[in-house]
Design a protein around this nucleic acid. Structure first.
Lengths: 216, 216
DNA sequence: TCTGCATTTTGATCTGTGTCAAGGTGGGGA
DNA sequence: TCCCCACCTTGACACAGATCAAAATGCAGA
């Protein structure tokens, strides 16, 4: 593909802010490995994460030159970047790329709208369960333990990052994680390794009406 | 434009649900006059509005055939519809349309992300002020009273619809409207007519860090 | 003009989550 | 190996907004 000619790679460490809101954006990019967040910060410091980027997700908007959000690596991260100018030129010449980008953007819009329901109407427990379900669906490192039907995930987020995504405080996140563990919905080894013995149970806890198409 | 050949109009009354989540969608459409909402409903009835559609906004996703949300007219509404099949065919042949649609979708995504911040981190008062600011920016019926610099808007939403959009109860919406009136941020004549004597003051109340480009 | 009902406002109280404050815990560096 | 410090958990209490309840408003239809 012609894109190969204008791409290059950059890597970042966990915790690093790749892009500050208001920065000039000289590239668009997609995640190769790792996880990043988009976040918005109010003047008084209140922070809301408005996007979770997993491998294959796209960042940056053709035709805009300043970043509207902070982009933060929450794990070590490898990005595939395209300088914006050549990318835009290529896009103008290649309808297929614009169409693919439209599809991806519509998917992101659906995900954002799902998240609006979560932030507006779900309880803290439902929010946590929903986040775990989303990570389980998207995290490349997920493994199904075949015999037991258990699912093991590595949370790519600190408790604080979870709180910022869920519109909660980190104390509430911690308490609800403990409660889900106490109630047998999840098992914890260390702080980041989560075992889900029964995915349907998790979805019930998340308050979702559909199963959302878990792979495997 | 070729689109003219395949379009037709439909009108709906305030309160009518145009499309139920799960319905087969035989058309895509854009709003001509009036206001509609997209909403998601949980099994137990909790409702979250996930989109506000003003004139010129687009509904429907090429390439998908069931509606993911309820679409409800909150005022009398005129829609300009395109049967989906011909629209898709036209889009495949006309890169310009896909590009325009991409731009509109990216704008909607930005708006949704702004809304995530509102739902996750703003107080009830800030939420109300933000909604009033959004309506003021988009409502076609807005009039600047030139001498005083006052802004008059007609709320296209009931208190309940406001609550569903803001992730609040209707009682809280009502109380905060009263509080904003008491504090001189807004003036109310009837329930729907709102005068904003000082738009900057409203934006401060909304907790936004930018003025968001008020026209006029 | 009056009536009736949906919508809105206001009041009293409850509760989930935030806030403030201590402790735990565990993994990386000396 | 041990220590340190960032990260996490837990506890006590406060408060914004929800819930339950009742009264007021205002518009559509007679």
């Amino acid at each position: 593909m012609a894109l190969d000619a204008i791409k290059y790679y950059r890597s970042f460490e966990a915790g690093q802010t790749l892009i500050w809101s208001g920065d000039r954006m000289e590239f668009v990019a997609s995640v190769v490995t790792g996880v990043a967040t988009l976040s918005q910060v109010m003047e008084d410091g209140r922070t809301q994460t408005v996007g979770l980027l997993f491998p294959s997700d796209f960042v940056g908007r053709p035709g805009r030159d300043t970043a509207p959000y902070n982009v933060v690596a929450t794990t070590d991260l490898l990005m595939c970047c395209f300088r914006k100018k050549p990318f835009e030129e290529l896009m103008a010449k290649t309808p297929h790329i614009a169409q693919r980008l439209l599809e991806m953007t519509l998917d992101e819009l659906d995900a954002a709208r799902e998240w609006l329901l979560l932030l507006g109407r779900k309880t803290a427990r439902e929010k946590i369960a929903s986040l775990l379900a989303i990570v389980a669906r998207r995290d490349a490192s997920l493994k199904m333990l075949p015999a037991a039907g258990k699912l093991v995930i590595d949370l790519p987020l600190t408790r604080e990052a979870m709180a910022d995504y869920l519109g909660l405080t980190l104390e509430t996140v911690s308490r609800q994680m403990s409660a889900l563990k106490r109630d047998g919905v999840i098992e914890l080894e260390g702080k980041r390794h989560v075992t889900i013995p029964n995915f349907d149970r998790l979805l019930e806890e998340a308050g979702d009406d559909t199963d959302g198409g878990m792979p495997g």
